[in-house]
Write a protein that binds this DNA or RNA. Structure first.
Lengths: 347, 347
DNA sequence: TTGTAAGCGTTATCAG
DNA sequence: CTGATAACGCTTACAA
């Protein structure tokens, strides 16, 4: 038998629970709980409870409440890299929606590690969060397998491989790349290079295909020498562009994202090449970074913030109505034209 | 979909708990729990339990476990702005330490809102997290008051006002500013401006004082016309520098952080002013941003990552040894010299 | 209106 | 080694 739980006075092992409050107020814990939750109680009793709670500095234990309520009020959001401004953009907008709903966002960085993401999904069934927004750049079979088993609702942002019955928001990378290429072509560029991210990521491979078809559609030759693949980072943009310049002389460079574009810009300027006069640059994602380089980056807006906002909203919808059929939404991209493609007064 | 679990006598309302597993295995929930946690159990019984768990896809409920264990394994970290790379740096390093300890980091953005932070601290006593790292740039009386009442351990990163008995890691802003001014002076700069953050923040005001005393110590006149105060943002750096250039012509500009410095750089280049030849720039925080502007930013490293790392470590220490006396640690700053103060081969 | 008591899903204690 | 059973702190029928 456990030791008998008989209380004289108000000793509760230093822990203040609803029982402490009830004892001090001289009422049952049920009454205390009711008053504390604003559900009835006579004025006199309520006053006693409230004053007792105040006196001992009572704060309800969220864990216990969650166990009872079967929900935590926490929403997880997993992104590959919090150092990449595109994900900051997404998280920011998602956070808005989530916190407006009275919930809290639990941010998790996956480092783009597929195994880690799957592990996260598996652990997710542990119910620490009421739902998850998963932003992924690589999708494996394991993802698909586990996605259909997870106990809590998941919204995936990013393009999926097959036809998974899961809520999904994706950026139309193909249309985005096309916008960029058309912009280059219309301003007279003929040798358009592409410093892209890794081909074993979804955005990387989709953009590669889109680049090739857009270039071809513009009546230009597709030349593998004009293509570089590396990480989605500033360093990769810098290195990739240097390698590129060692073998060809493009008059325009499309970059896999804004971080890469910043690296490309840096490499060009360091080589004494004028931007945009000699070489034009377009980044992708249209993040805060695009505003802050000099010259400012023209960038394809793939609706990063909108994706975050929408993913959050879809998740809340599903929480409210679990039987909703899975939704797939895509965002229409647009081009934010700035100074790396069109010379402006500043230059 | 997993609707198939409604068979035989094992219907538990669609929810799989340890009881479900125990029933199917034909053992007590105590035995099931033990086996599932790797604590004994005969081979034969263990096998039965494990196979049952596997069959129904049992996943332990973390909430229930937390209620029992009186801990969640979650550590909160609250930062003013996840768009500012200094906080990303801090969070990254903290995350490393925390996840190495088998815990998870719950990131919370406070928007630098003092009231929100106090609310967070208050709600924190709800025990959703085992501890909190609070990175704050404004400290109010309310902070101090509540800090001494919170139920879970808190580590504050940032300079505190008085002598609060709480674990604390801070950056030596004064020494950092001094390093910057000395570097300017040694390279022959005489008219050193300061585009700073808001004076009603701790770093803003501390750096203001330090700037004035360092300039005076160098034998230069302190001129209010050389000082601009705004937000800790790129836009504020841009605007502040434009206003500055309207009334004075400095030969060096110290910036309150790297975001401001990027704005300053942008404003100078847009005005056709050569950097660093005509005007030198030093940022603060030495974030990833300092590496990616062109030219690269010289920046005062105030140990952002180190602060995150140390804060996490202090928190873990306190979790392990609650009776430790409060510790106050400061980080020794250094100057990361790059191209906005010293012309390099690239230029 | 108020109190009693039954859970929420685990783990831990204590007898067999 | 195994099985009842008492917590963990809270909410909520159900009674009084």
């Amino acid at each position: 038998m456990g030791r008998k739980r008989f209380r004289l006075g108000h000793d509760h092992g230093g822990r203040v629970t609803v029982r402490t409050v009830a004892d001090i107020a001289g009422v049952s814990i049920a009454s205390a709980s009711r008053v504390l939750n604003g559900l009835g109680g006579s004025p006199e009793l309520s006053a006693r409870v409230r004053s007792a709670a105040e006196r001992v500095g009572y704060v309800p234990n969220a864990i216990a409440r969650s166990l009872q309520a079967q929900r935590t009020g926490l929403i997880g959001i997993a992104v590959p890299d919090i150092g990449n401004p595109i994900f900051i953009q997404m998280v920011r907008q998602a956070e808005r929606v989530i916190s407006d709903s009275g919930r809290q966002l639990l941010l998790h960085a996956t480092k783009g590690d597929a195994a880690g993401e799957v592990e996260l999904l598996r652990g997710l069934a542990r119910r620490y969060v009421d739902g998850l927004i998963l932003s992924t750049i690589k999708v494996t079979e394991a993802h698909h397998a586990i996605l259909s088993q997870v106990a809590v609702p998941v919204v995936v942002t990013g393009q999926l491989l097959g036809d998974v019955p899961v809520d999904n928001v994706w950026a139309d990378n193909t249309a985005g790349v096309q916008l960029a290429i058309e912009h280059f072509v219309q301003s007279g560029r003929r040798r358009i290079a592409f410093v892209n991210g890794p081909l074993d990521t979804i955005p990387g491979s989709v953009r590669d295909v889109a680049y090739r078809s857009s270039v071809a559609a513009a009546g230009l030759a597709v030349d593998d020498d004009l293509i570089e693949n590396g990480d989605f980072t500033f360093a990769a943009g810098l290195d990739g562009t240097r390698r590129l310049l060692d073998r060809v002389r493009p008059d325009a460079i499309l970059c896999g994202n804004d971080l890469i574009a910043a690296g490309t810009l840096h490499a060009l300027l360091a080589s004494g090449i004028r931007v945009p006069t000699e070489v034009a640059i377009i980044g992708m994602d249209n993040t805060a970074l695009a505003e802050l380089t000099f010259p400012r980056l023209t960038s394809v807006d793939l609706g990063g913030g909108e994706r975050g906002r929408m993913a959050a909203r879809m998740l809340l919808d599903r929480l409210e109505t679990p039987d909703l059929p899975p939704r797939h939404e895509s965002i229409v991209p647009f081009l934010a034209v700035r100074d790396t493609t069109v010379p402006n007064g500043d230059l």
